[in-house]
Amino acid sequence: MANRKEVQRAGILEVARLAGVSRQTVTRAMNDMPGISVETKRRVLEAAEELRYRPSRFGRELVQQSTQSLGLIVSDLANPYFSELASEVAKVAAANGWALVVVEKRPGPESGRAELRSLAGQVDAIIAYLDLAPHDIDGIFGNLPLVLLDTSEQTLDALSPSRPRGAVSIDLAPGLTDAVDHLLALGRKRIALVDIMYSTDESVRCGIFRELIRERGQEPTVIKVEVAEDDLHVGRRAVEVAFSAPEPPDAIIAFNDMSAFGVLKELRVRGLSVPETCCVIGIDGLKIGLFVDPELTTLRLDFAAFAQLAFDEAVQLSTTNVSSPLPQSRKRVFHELVVRQSG
């Protein structure tokens, strides 16, 4: 069989660059939708012909069903945190007449790039959890409106100011303050935080926790656990480490609810009572926390409000002229301490 040079088909972003318009304008022109001038439509169609661009059938079907479509990027839909968030985003998108496309982007800067580029050519805006470097974010998504969830300030500061970008971050400080003060009021003397070790420095929650504990006259205890196959195993390993110490903790704030479930499991296996021997507090407020024994005390995130705020940001960005985008928007949400049986 003769060797043939593989030719990569041009995408919607290439057409948009050649025509000097947004990808949304390309979508309108290719689907004969209102809202663009005759001259702009001609320029788009000529660019598409020059690049031999052919819209995907999937993309055309999305446009026919809804004039606008939203992408959601999460790392693992099997994790209840992301599935609860996706459910709320789906509800708010449907209520506003937007189609929703959900993509999993597994952890690791090199994973899932092809899927992300494909998504960028199919939707009008994206809400995303991403672990990419700023230049990769701008390179993959270009002028597509993008709302980043719970990302670092360093990443936001490094993004191109000419791109339509927004962010909704989770401020852990108020919730952790309530959790620490609650445990101190219960008379707990040795409060520990479970922190997952990544290749970067310690987590934001770890820094907040250390400061809170020291401000209250105690020495912070942080149980650092390497990334395991899942967060349940992180919690179980944290208990193994904590209770091998000369003075084990009498309260544990887990990295999240899933790791808190692992903490509860391992404490029970060891015959240690909760909350009598050790209080346990999770972070996230997953619905399943009501169905473990004892019911989990947690810092609850309002997923519905989180999703609505992110969606509103995406809509605002998508209605902004890409030649003069809004100043980068940064919104915050907070946790609420919900006291149940575990602490």
Score class of each variant (00 low, 15 high):
18 L>Q: 02
25 T>Y: 00
31 N>L: 06
31 N>T: 12
34 P>S: 04
39 E>R: 11
43 R>E: 00
46 E>T: 13
48 A>D: 06
55 P>V: 02
59 G>M: 04
65 Q>M: 02
70 L>S: 02
72 L>C: 09
80 P>Q: 09
82 F>C: 08
82 F>D: 08
94 A>C: 09
96 N>T: 12
102 V>F: 01
106 R>I: 06
107 P>A: 00
108 G>K: 07
117 R>M: 12
132 L>F: 10
134 P>F: 02
136 D>G: 13
141 F>S: 15
150 D>A: 11
153 E>Q: 07
158 A>V: 12
162 S>P: 08
164 P>D: 00
165 R>T: 05
166 G>E: 10
171 D>M: 05
175 G>N: 00
178 D>Y: 03
188 R>M: 14
193 L>Q: 08
195 D>Q: 12
207 G>C: 07
210 R>F: 08
219 E>V: 10
220 P>N: 04
237 R>L: 10
250 D>A: 04
252 I>Y: 08
257 D>R: 13
259 S>L: 02
262 G>R: 04
266 E>Y: 06
268 R>K: 09
269 V>G: 01
270 R>P: 15
271 G>D: 09
279 C>K: 05
281 I>Q: 07
285 G>R: 10
292 V>N: 10
293 D>E: 07
298 T>L: 00
303 F>A: 10
304 A>Q: 03
305 A>G: 09
315 V>E: 02
316 Q>R: 13
317 L>N: 05
318 S>C: 10
318 S>M: 11
320 T>F: 01
322 V>T: 12
326 L>A: 06
327 P>R: 09
330 R>D: 04
331 K>R: 10
331 K>E: 15
331 K>I: 00
342 S>P: 13
343 G>W: 02
